[in-house]
Each structure stands twice: as structure tokens, then as C-alpha cells.
Amino acid sequence: MTIRHHASDESLLRYAAGQLPAGPARVLAVHLATCPCCRERLAAFEAVGGALLEATAPAPMAPDAFAAALRAIDREEAARAPATPAPTHLEARARPRAPVTLPGGIPLPAPLQDCEIGPWRWIGLGVRASTVRLPEDPEARLTLLRVGPGRKLPEHGHVGTEFTQVISGSFSDGFGRYGPGDLSEMDQEIEHQPIVDREGDCYCLAALEGSMRLNGFFGRLVQPFVRL
């Protein structure tokens, strides 16, 4: 997978800081899972966080805070003592559920495996959509889109940034061609008109920070799904 379109500095910085809303953060997580280059940049931005933490002038904890921490540790150790040893790293990560796939047998990206994928609904013009619910934030706005080959989405704009990660297939807009693993971040005030390439369906994961311009086509398209 050759990735040509990467996360922006702003988004990676906000992701590193834990300041990106849940929906866009998941889209980024899907991108990061397949993009070593963005993982490397993320590590640098997290190191900024570490440096800022160390540079922060300390604010004293309550005088008995450390003693309380030791008591909490004692309680945990006592509760754990007779039990089996803690699971290893790998066991802790194992997920018992069978992996979820998208229609056509396309595997759902690993960072979405704990999400609830809603039913696919036909919403016109060769476009189907499914709402993705995040366990940690049911209000997050996250949508899987399946767009037929050669389909054109009328130009749309938005208030805030639209994050679109290609899972399979490809589309093109005035800014280039986006294939599997590519991330498109469309800033506010940018109008674009994605066209899905002829080879086949395009599956992508989309999240919006802010709100879609309501008069835009895409806004009306996903409105029922993102509860604008």
C-alpha cells in the first residue's frame, strides 16, 4: 500500500495532545494503523507533550496523596495475590470476537473492530452509508460510505474539517487521487467534488469536525446519519 495523502500537522498535533474529537480521532487511528510515516510524526508530537509535561511548573499534590497511592497499591496487590498472574501483553490485546467484515468481504480496519456498524442504507446516487457507533462516545459523528464506480458527488463545502480515510477502492477530486490508506482532510471553505474511480466501489470512513454546510448536497446526504 503506497500512501500518498497523509494526516496534516494540525490534526496529528491535536491527536497527540488528545484534543481531537472522537470521530476524527478514529479516522486518524485507522490511517495511523497503516501509515508508518504518520506514526513517526505522531511519536515526535507526543514527545512534545512529554517535554511540555516536564517543563510545567509543579503544583503540589495534597500532603497525604502519596500515602493514599501506596494504600491503593497495597489493596490492589492484596486482592491480586492469590489469583493467576497478570495476562501477558499479547493475551491482554486478544479480542475474542470474530472480525467484522464489510460487504464484499472487505475486512473492517482493526481500529474499528470494537465499534457497532449500523445497517447499510441506500441514500441515492449509488451511495450507501452506515453509521459507526463508538463505544466511548455514542454521539460521535462517524460514517462508513460506499460509493459506486464512476459516481460523482456534487460539490460540497463544510464548516470545520472533513476527514475521509479510504478503506478500499479510490476516488479523485481536484486535489488528487485517493487510494486505500490515503487520508483526505478537507478544510473549511474548500469546495471539492470527489469522483469515485471506475474500477469498483469505494469504501471510506468519514468524520466531520464542526457542521456540514446545510445547503450542500453532501450535507443533506449524510444529515440523517450524523444527526446534524
Binding site: 511519536a43 507526543e46 514527545a47 507533550g49 512529554g50 509535561l53 462516545d137
Partner: peptide, 23 residues
Amino acid sequence: AGAATWIFTIARNLRIDHLRRLR
């Protein structure tokens, strides 16, 4: 990651969890 960076990421994640629990 360095020690401070690792601890920063734990704090970041717990802060996110806390805010989401509130919501």
C-alpha cells in the same frame, strides 16, 4: 517513547476517558 512522553500519553488517555464519562 521516553519516560515523560509515556507518562504524558497515559495522562492524555485518562483525561479523554474522564471527559467522555462526563459526557
